[in-house]
Design a protein around this nucleic acid. Structure first.
Lengths: 152, 152
DNA sequence: CATAATATGATATAAAGTATCATCTATGTT
DNA sequence: AACATAGATGATACTTTATATCATATTATG
């Protein structure tokens, strides 16, 4: 189970995946599209008796982000669960996100060497040294391309 | 003068660069770093007797963005004036922004063909068709690289 | 000048995010 | 088991960011 893998992953960093954190992560994993902090909050509070304060959600999202279990999309201020919780994928290089304009789904992909090089090169022409890269690219996913073609 | 060029540019689109719009644009052009909407508001209201409401600033920023006189940085929710108001530069391809972590300055650059191709290629491997690209890349600008080296 | 279209003012409110301090809980120590 | 301590959460208040809505003013055009 994914949550179990996340727990192990936390433990390796000397961190704990508490009940609340599990709850937040679970909500994000069940969503097919990115959620705002307050959307996460509302979903959490549906399934619980004791309401969680907004502050906690932000804290927990920060935590999960540090643990690389969750990624924050800075263009929309929303959050998605990492696509690689289960597998032993490492975030070596930059991670990019492909945002579908049709269905709001997100695809997480590793940066290719070519893309990283090209961008670094681009920055270098004006003397800039890049420190981080994470892009959010808008487009249309396969599914939506197909359904659009058939008038759906 | 830059404002004059902006005025012409608006006129070409059948739009008007009114006094208020000029004021907002002027504030942004004078700033060495991106400003939030409310920062723009405060600066505008320093130099005027009649206070402008927040709503107007947002409306005007939207307008200026449509006219490509101003760009919005989605990672920080801030605004910068376009680097190409004076020249007859066209925004053919994607525009990227290099954000200096040292001095908060912003460098606006055109996407290189290599970078665009590499990213498009990357998206294509998972069946994604890109529609737009605009990146905000963090790094260190030339000036800050030099001053850091000398312990400043 | 009348009038329609644009632009701005004014007010209220929603949504997003942070600061701060109190309380609770897991964990290790004696 | 009792205790101390660090880490996590609760509670409250507040700041920042953004939008909705309706009234008023300004400009272009017949």
């Amino acid at each position: 189970m994914l949550l179990r893998a996340a727990e192990v992953s936390c433990a390796e960093n000397g961190a704990r995946l508490t009940e609340r954190r599990r709850q937040v992560l679970s909500v994000l994993m069940q969503s097919s599209s990115p959620l705002s902090a307050y959307e996460v909050l509302d979903l959490c509070n549906l399934s619980t008796t004791s309401a969680m304060p907004a502050m906690s959600v932000y804290r927990i999202l920060d935590f999960l982000e540090q643990q690389l279990l969750v990624h924050r999309l800075s263009t929309s201020n929303k959050y998605v669960s990492c696509a690689h919780i289960a597998c032993d994928h490492k975030h070596f290089q930059a991670t990019h996100f492909l945002l579908c304009e049709g269905c709001s789904s997100v695809e997480e992909v590793d940066a290719t060497q070519e893309a990283s090089d090209a961008l670094e090169q681009m920055a270098e022409t004006v003397g800039f040294k890049l420190t981080t890269q994470q892009f959010e690219l808008s487009g249309i996913c396969t599914t939506c391309q197909n359904s659009a073609g058939r008038g759906l």
